[in-house]
Amino acid sequence: MDKFREIADYLGTYDGPPVTLMEVCGTHTASIVENGIEAMLSPKIRLITGPGCPVCVTVAEYIEKLMELSLKENTCVCSFGDMIRVPCERGSLRDAQAMGGRVMMLYSPLDLLEIAPKEPRTTFIFAAVGFETTTPLYALLLEELIKRDITNVKLLCALKTMPAVIDRVLGSGSGVTGMIAPGHVSVMTGSDIYKPFAENTASPLWWQALRAAPCWRLYGPFVSFRAKGWLKISIPRR
């Protein structure tokens, strides 16, 4: 607990060069908001929410397509829970459900390995969104589908890769001086994908697991690095 107080005091009273930090991941954003972390920081530290939630950055046309598919006969659109409420101009998947569409919320795409064979006349379409974290899961699903000869599952892909997004943000004159890189993506990719950004843009990047405690623990050393002028990538051990 003392360690927390020490970091909180440091961040609350920080008076060095201004620091603008972006958390890439949507779950980091949620943790920061839920725990009131921003209100506890010195005015010299600014937090900007990043583009790393695959659900939030899904384009409207994709949701429209899913809605359309859910209304087709013998078709069921499957999705992670958070995607179901994301609206486009025509509404959301939940609205499509209210219009008579068939939409199923799944914890994991792999659940389809049990569900799909029970309804061979239905085509199950999974809303395959995600970054590097989720892509192997879809690959595993496809491998298992082929192995088990299940032919009524399809993926509607909207997969993205993180380096292109980070490159865009850091090169856009956004003023971001450091980034908390996405934890789960880093678990899959390793940390080397961030090195070019740290070297080329002089922005430190730090990856960490999701949720508030690690987030909070991160800001202390992060700000301290900026204040001391450390410009290289800073990555805790994998």
């Binding site: 914890y107 994991s108 795409p109 792999l110 192997p136 595993l140 789960h184 697991a209």
Partner: peptide, 8 residues
Amino acid sequence: LVHAGLVI
């Protein structure tokens, strides 16, 4: 750690 039903 588990992500969407997969040990990562």
